[in-house]
Design a protein around this nucleic acid. Structure first.
Lengths: 153, 153, 153, 153
DNA sequence: TATGAATGAGCCTTCATTCAT
DNA sequence: CATGAATGAAGGCTCATTCAT
């Protein structure tokens, strides 16, 4: 991994920790910059706006979550168990987002589309994962055939 | 109700709505003042600091919650049902606090005692309410005698 | 003394103490009002502006000083001793004015004439007192005839 | 001298002049910033708080005073004359502090230790200077051996 | 890449002053 | 006489963001 990517990761890590501990508004660019031993202005080279940094953190968390679920999918356990583990992980993830201040950032540039821009792709991935679990459950006879229909609308 | 108390209530209402929609930090005294058609300075006549306004809102919410639970206590239903309703209301209340930004106000004067100063008395009241439900359940034979011991220490 | 004059004196006393302890700017009308158990608005019935209250305090101090000097004049001591006592009192008085914040109130309405409006008459009185002492000294042969000429310009 | 130090000096100069003419409270950060053709916010880049700016001004004045005394010490004059010049300068310096509003800043963070934090080191230096003069006076026979004992305790 | 320096915009808070009652 | 209520104006401070180097 090149130097730039490394710095980027370090910033992301620092930002994640700040956001988690103090929330979005109470974490300043100055502090995050200090954490990674950069000048505040330098942060703007990697992330053109605080909002972008936040988005990156959220997406990173979403990726981690998806990876965790994929790992579960590959385990040799019943679909029911997988569904249970999914729900458990989902709750934890939601709590994390709370800590990051996601729900308090009502003040983004275009308020109405935060949710969309932050979660659109993520929800699509999530649905696919659930679908996989359900299909497996149906195939193995654990769930009834009409157990759950996603993509109905 | 006299004029002053009325204004105070109006301010509290406006503040509650602002906090609920935008969180503590993103709600400004200016906006809240505008909502009740007062100058910003006038707000300070009723509440000496933003934090005080916030405290007042939280305590109001806690009172509402306690009243709701007390109403449930007086209903002619089983203790189990009461316990269920309690939990349900409790969850809703928690969500409301989240919206108000309670959990994101890491920046109060003395960070360590926010929780204490905001919830101390409330928790005491809550324990009493739960105790009442449990006692009733035991008396009526719904719960076993050793169901739950509060105040054990 | 009627009730109004009494209140006025009480306010003056409170103001003097506040100014002496905290200076002009750091003494608020609210505090002074509280000290005499009046509403802030009521202060404005007696003194139409904070500046007026300040002026009144200063003038009161000046009167006290003049009275003290007059008392000295009437004592049965040498003119030299009187002159010495005068200087001593004068220094004390000056220090008091410092405490009241007189020298820091550069910010009155019309900056240039504060000094004038606050001290004009006082200086006139002062000169008269000194003149009396000097004349007495000359008359008694303590001072030479050309000791000091006031009113020269 | 680099640009930053220059700006810092310019700010210090502007602040000193403002404080001297209007006192601490009546000098605003906005005005001082304007004087050096900076935005108010930029002042905070150099001095994190108004109080810090004030402290810096005071310390600068103290340094100037000490330098002036040191210059006197090196002159080829009697110790008595040096002592006289010291007292003269000291009085002037005291007046300057008065003008800066030092004695009217009753409102610092921790009132009791302003004096300490502003003058502690300065007093130590002053004592050393006086000691030097006295020792010289004793050595040259100008002062009696028991003239003055500093550091007696 | 990196940053020192600068700032506009905004926020909380204070306070002398006013005025209807 | 007295004051509750209201406010304009101002001040200190913060912070995301920009830009020349």
């Amino acid at each position: 991994m090149d130097k730039t990517k490394e710095k980027e990761q370090a910033i992301l890590k620092a930002a994640r920790e700040r956001f988690a501990q103090f929330g979005f508004n109470k974490s300043t660019m100055d502090e995050i910059a200090s954490d990674v031993e950069l000048g505040k202005a330098s942060l703007y080279y990697y992330f053109p706006a605080k909002e972008d940094l936040f988005r990156a953190v959220i997406h990173h968390e979403q990726d981690e979550f998806v990876k965790a679920i994929e790992k579960i999918l590959n385990q040799n356990i019943t679909a029911s168990k997988k569904l249970f583990l999914y729900v458990e992980n989902r709750l934890e993830f939601f709590e994390e987002l709370l800590n990051l201040g996601t729900l308090n950032v009502h003040s983004f540039s275009n308020t109405k589309s935060i949710y969309k821009s932050l979660f659109e792709n993520f929800h699509y991935q999530e649905l696919k994962l659930i679908q996989i679990i359900i299909n497996e459950g149906k195939r193995k006879g654990e769930f009834k055939k009409h157990f759950l229909q996603i993509y109905r609308n």
